[in-house]
């Protein structure tokens, strides 16, 4: 799994952090998403897919 982000699209909802706190964080200044782990281990994959699906700005792309 490889994750990419579109920071411009991120609306700082923080939903990804609520779902997958090991993989996503938010910048303190503006809340924009920060990727903690672009290639997370298998046990994180379900949470990452969930985060990508519910991100209200479609800012998270998951590649196989």
């Amino acid at each position: 799994m490889n994750i990419t982000l579109d920071e411009d699209k991120c609306c700082a909802a923080g939903q990804c952090v609520l779902v997958a706190p090991e993989v996503f964080d938010q910048r303190d200044e503006d809340g924009i998403v920060v990727l903690l782990d672009a290639q997370p281990p298998a046990e994180q994959h379900a949470a990452v897919h969930e985060a990508a699906a519910i991100c209200p700005a479609a800012a998270i792309q998951v590649h196989a």
């Binding site: 700082a12 923080g14 952090v17 609520l18 938010q26 910048r27 303190d28 809340g31």
Partner: peptide, 10 residues
């Protein structure tokens, strides 16, 4: 408010 604080409000 800082993002972490806002998330905590949920």
């Amino acid at each position: 408010l800082p993002p972490r604080q806002i998330r905590g409000l949920r």
